[in-house]
Design a protein around this nucleic acid. Structure first.
Lengths: 207, 207
DNA sequence: GTAACTTTGTGAAATGTTTCACAAAAATGC
DNA sequence: GCATTTTTGTGAAACATTTCACAAAGTTAC
């Protein structure tokens, strides 16, 4: 398994999306240049990204759309579905549960937890919000592959520790904190305020 | 104005958050090492990041917490408030409007637009959802500094074009598309499904 | 006041990522 | 079938970012 930069992985996901579009339009082959212009990068970058994993194209012709899409799904681990648990039934959690992009891509939210009594027992998109105190019991019965953390900042680390204890190996974290986890657990933190701050910096620095 | 990597800017935002925490605890000075361990990086990285903008510390002692926080706010353009318009009154938009982190950091959502008649006129967190057809008229009356795009994929580019025409120079884009904008407009795209896919890759590649 | 310790600021080295440039392979045109 | 065109795959070069390592400056202890 080659060691590949995160930036490369993100681009592969984008390429896959474009390939699926092309597939829907009945396009059979695509050149690195076409993929590049669709994705705001360069043809050399596309070829280099793919070359980490093998050689999928035909010189003079390009890449076969369905085959390359399939290989990318395999590389990205998207040829299966993932069971996802969400911890935190707040506003962002609510939006994410209803977000179709997740299910479309193979991520099924199968349980939601919260600590707030006024939320526990509510129906959310067909799921009953469970008491976070029952996390261990519920996830032992119905294990998950990934967790989405949408708790307040102070609750995030303790919950992450419990998830790690339950064997969860992947966490998507929306709480604005840096989570400490063992090396074999992968965490991706999305910090929405921070994204606005990079815009603010960009505006401030170009005057 | 020095040319600085985006990764550096993101870390500066994190440092600012930690400094504000320290400030709340009445801590007067902090070393690069303390900031680093709080932020999951190294002391050399912290010092290098800061050195792009000047020299703020005292050897043997560290950095004065309130002064450094203030300088970071200045560098990041956070010593003012920003007027933010949101286009798209869907689930994610709803969550973002109510998200306190934005206002806390100086970003005030002052208008929401949608094209759906069943949403137009509704009250959202004290704001009336406006018809996106009136975008030009409303934003001429009440200009914005930044826009948050939470439309469906196919609406994003046309709306972005109109925003650019109105002089908007910064866009935070949640639609899963690559926006084309002039060089003097800065776009930050957040693609939630893509974040899960990087997790999926991480799981798939370490077996 | 002096010695020992701490910590910054920063060139230089190491490492990582993107771009270049071109040979090799295949397709196309005539 | 041969010349021309297209396009991949990939080392090498260019560029970018992080880490190292250490002198300089300041603090602390006595």
């Amino acid at each position: 398994m080659p060691k590949v930069a995160e930036s490369t992985v993100r681009r592969l996901s984008l390429y896959l999306r474009f390939l699926e579009e092309f597939e829907g339009q009945g396009i059979a082959t695509v050149s690195s240049g076409a993929l590049a212009s669709r994705g705001g990068t360069t043809s050399a970058q596309v070829r280099k990204d793919l070359s980490f994993f093998g050689s999928f194209g035909k010189r003079g012709l390009g890449y076969p759309v369905p085959e390359l899409a399939d290989r990318l799904r395999e590389i990205l681990g998207l040829k299966r579905r993932y069971r996802v648990g969400m911890i935190g039934a707040g506003k962002i959690g609510s939006a994410l549960v209803q977000y179709r992009g997740f299910r479309q891509r193979g991520f099924d939210i199968i349980a939601i937890f919260d600590s707030d009594n006024s939320k526990i027992g509510r129906q959310w998109n067909g799921l009953t919000v469970l008491d976070v105190n029952t996390l261990e019991r519920e996830l032992s019965k119905h294990p998950i592959d990934m967790a989405v953390l949408v708790t307040p900042a102070e609750a995030a680390q303790p919950v992450a520790d419990r998830l790690v204890g339950l064997g969860v190996k992947a966490i998507l974290n929306f709480a604005p904190v840096q989570l400490a986890v063992p090396d074999d657990v992968v965490v991706k933190t999305v910090n929405l305020a921070l994204e606005l701050e990079t815009l603010s910096y960009a505006l401030a620095s170009r005057n």
